[in-house]
Design a protein around this nucleic acid. Structure first.
Lengths: 240, 240
DNA sequence: GATTGCATCACTGTATCCAGTGATGCAATC
DNA sequence: GATTGCATCACTGGATACAGTGATGCAATC
């Protein structure tokens, strides 16, 4: 194992982590699904051990749930939990924008405009990579804040709701209106008013939350009960 | 191992996690210190494996740092990182208060008053458990929000800065003024104005951050360089 | 005398093995 | 016929064993 690691992972455990993470993000491992260490280990050509340690990391980020002696399941989020994630994100991204404001100049605004153009183009193409552009847009702003921990936390929240965003965007298949609400954020940043930009970002995130929650509640998705430990009668949103 | 686990941990890994966490919180394992899995495993009468998995969890929470093939060190925070943690906490706790407001009634306010009395008493006794009362006060408010993820994130931030808070409080040995600023928060909650309460909580947290940062910068502590990976020339605050 | 290269050693990461726990299905009894 | 108890089985968590990597110290050469 001294050569030929395909991915950029330095260690087998890291490789397992990235592989499982990706599978959850794109919805290949679905909420409620049981993750069998042995199976995944075989797929990745390694032993169960690094896979188990990857489970630990994922569990800590809330993406899977490990119940002692009863295995590891992908922890789907309930609508309430999704909404809560957005609530948290709204204040964190609000903070990020506020802290980023002093560093915003013409070059930054130009970059933001180009981000939005990319989003609009991929939106019209109906491509599913609108989401990646969208996340890149948000991450760019966050990075401007110069706060690494903040960036990390926001990124984790993006990942957690990504599977749900994905099906939503797939259904509405024209995320142009969504793109337009981004303009409001950039416009707010152009005013130079940090408090205003913060509030605008908050509103923007919460508006997305409301639209997504509405969509999920509208029953365009089957709402099953992938049994989860602990919380009684909590039925996570099921992906198609 | 079917009986007699001393702590409430269901699994060895959990026990290791709690033990190491506690050691870091109270400052027994200090920033920059190398954590040897074998040593800790012996102390806890288990093998290296569960200890390693505990390391994973701690690394994810940012309390330790694992560099591939080079072991696990307690990741001390720089003053900037401490300040950043407070910034994040300020908006999260602000959110928590805002969401908690609808549930605030006379009984809740009475409970908050009793929390503060306890804090004042332990403050005058010079006891180091002022901190636990203080954290309990904040956690009580957070719980009122009814947002489990939010509570968890805030709690993690409290833990991360706890060692530094501890030495600070030990130095000023009369955290009465600190207690008084809590009153401002409770008073704001009494007004029933959610936005005002949110802003007040934010200010309260940031004021604490400023005082702590000032103390740490004032050099009451030696500022050494427990070498950390990645960031060049980042010298974490060293505990006495 | 200093610097560089090599060898040895300590330690980390991974694999395999073993024991304990929860689940499932069948049989027996009510 | 239904329900409960037991036995078996699959799987998880933990321990031990092994291989690979980085560090350290000594020696040799410049």
């Amino acid at each position: 194992m001294s050569f030929g690691r395909t991915s950029s992972a330095a260690t087998a455990q890291e490789e397992a982590y990235l592989a499982i993470l990706q599978a959850i993000r794109v919805g290949r491992y679905q909420p409620g699904e049981r993750l069998i260490p042995e199976t995944i280990a075989q797929e990745l050509a390694m032993s169960r051990m690094p896979v188990r340690e990857a489970f630990q990391r994922l569990a800590n980020e809330g993406l899977v749930m490990i119940r002692p002696n009863r295995g590891c399941v992908v922890s789907g989020l309930t609508i309430d939990e999704i909404f809560e994630s957005f609530e948290i994100r709204s204040v964190l991204e609000g903070l990020a924008v506020r802290l980023a404001m002093p560093r915003v100049d013409a070059a930054v605004l130009a970059e933001l405009d180009s981000f939005m153009q990319r989003m609009e183009r991929s939106g019209e193409a109906g491509g599913g990579d609108w989401l990646s552009h969208h996340q890149a847009f948000h991450e760019y702003i966050c990075r401007l804040s110069g706060r690494p921990k903040l960036v990390r936390q926001i990124s984790a929240l993006h990942i957690a709701v990504e599977p749900y965003m994905r099906v939503w965007l797939h259904h509405i298949d024209r995320p142009r209106t969504a793109t337009q609400t981004q303009h409001v954020v950039v416009d707010a940043m152009k005013t130079g008013d940090a408090a205003f930009a913060e509030q605008t970002m908050r509103d923007h995130v919460m508006r997305t939350a409301q639209r997504l929650a509405e969509f999920l509640r509208s029953g365009n998705l089957a709402t099953g009960t992938p049994r989860r430990a602990g919380q009684a009668a909590s039925s996570a949103v099921q992906l198609p």
